[in-house]
Write a protein that binds this DNA or RNA. Sequence first.
DNA 1: CGTGCAATTGAGTTGAGTCAAGGCTAGTGG
DNA 2: CCACTAGCCTTGACTCAACTCAATTGCACG
Lengths: 261, 261
Amino acid sequence: MIAAFIRRCRQTGELSAAGAAALEHSIGPRMQIFGAREELFRPGDVQKTIYLVNAGIACQCSVLRDGRRQITSFLLPGDLFDVRAYLGMPFEHHVYTLSMLETMPLVLSDVTACGAGTSGLEEVLWRAVALHSAISREWVLNVGQRSAVERIAHLLCELFTRLQAVGLTFDNRCLLPLTQIDVAEAVGLTPVHVNRTLMSMTRSGCVTFHRGVLVIHDWERLAEIAGFDARYLQIEPTKPLSDSPSQATRRSATHCSHESR
Amino acid sequence: MIAAFIRRCRQTGELSAAGAAALEHSIGPRMQIFGAREELFRPGDVQKTIYLVNAGIACQCSVLRDGRRQITSFLLPGDLFDVRAYLGMPFEHHVYTLSMLETMPLVLSDVTACGAGTSGLEEVLWRAVALHSAISREWVLNVGQRSAVERIAHLLCELFTRLQAVGLTFDNRCLLPLTQIDVAEAVGLTPVHVNRTLMSMTRSGCVTFHRGVLVIHDWERLAEIAGFDARYLQIEPTKPLSDSPSQATRRSATHCSHESR
DNA sequence: CGTGCAATTGAGTTGAGTCAAGGCTAGTGG
DNA sequence: CCACTAGCCTTGACTCAACTCAATTGCACG
């Protein structure tokens, strides 16, 4: 049920088997489902629950008065949001789903019930926050210093790695239900420029990103372009395989659309 | 001694008077002083203490392999860094001082000693993290979507407001020991462009930022340019006074250097 | 009185944005 | 089963905000 989350917690060793069981027991039955492109929260909302993403993708987005939009983080399976809730603070940003989303409310009492202190859920929350703050810092760097190709490459590396950590990648590909517009809002570029850049990237043969499917043909090269170092994600970096032994998908760009169906 | 920090905690009501006393008693004597432009931590460092900035300014900075640098946050008096330490995680960024810095190590036992749970230091840490994550998100927005003037204006508004919250502003001015290069690294622009932009801003009469002194002549206008909304800083926004009744400092740009001495 | 870093200014370049027009695809409703 | 629509993707031509390179000034510190 809440596989992604528990999987990640166990992996980093923060949650005991008992804790995992307790957690599954207590929050398992409370799943909530949302459709794609639904708004979950808007600025000013206050609520005391933290949500756990079980399946699907959502994002947090800040909007300027004149309509410029910036996605400030993606919420993938296994992620918690938003810690501000833990403190009863109002949101300053929008949270909306990008795909269908399965979510569980984590009530405060769960946190304490599973054994507060440094070995229970309390620590899980701390780690979640630390992770998100590391990601957020990396985004500042990404948007502040890197060029268009580098930004996009970095974002793709990050998302792929995070999905990999919760078992949602298959060899060198994964489902990533974002539009180019979403990518643009995440990396601070215009959709037009994202499109041109993505095209040239697939032409150069290292990634394909079409209709919600990301295929990484040459991880080494992509990571090199991005200057990607997975350590900040607190995940042991299991490199995805590149394309199967010299199938040489990189030679032609034209059949990308086949691969990514 | 640790006035700035306690002041802020009391202000937001997270720390009881007793807690404050206990805190002052336990960590007061452990002050550490660093010079300007000293590196405190570098990527890979691990240490278990959280530091509390008492006076001075430091920053966290990420560096790309080719030397591009991005400051990802400023550490002002009253700030805690770095929560990753709380979890024993390695740093991925540099931390260095910008001015002389007075710092206190907060050891984990202090946290629990002052009464763990939701009313003691534990909550203070949570709030510190929530604040920093809000700031970080705002930076992504800043660097991702805003133009040069907007970025700089926003940064100045943020820093002024944060300093104000710990009582380090005087009317419409404050000490801000940053070079234009630092500003450039924080907002993701080149120093040259920051210079040009700052010049035009002071020419237009709303701010002066010279030799470590920031003077805000027209807060309304600056905040308007920046699209600044202080709520994310969790501080009740006490607007700084603009220039004293129609002294009209804005008419001339030439005497800025006097004001800011 | 150098020496070195920060600030300033000018001239020329460019990466990314803007505007505008088609093309593709999935979903809708007749 | 086939128009019709609405998003998204794609492409071209042009513009501009910010960058680069380069030189000069100014200040502070030894």
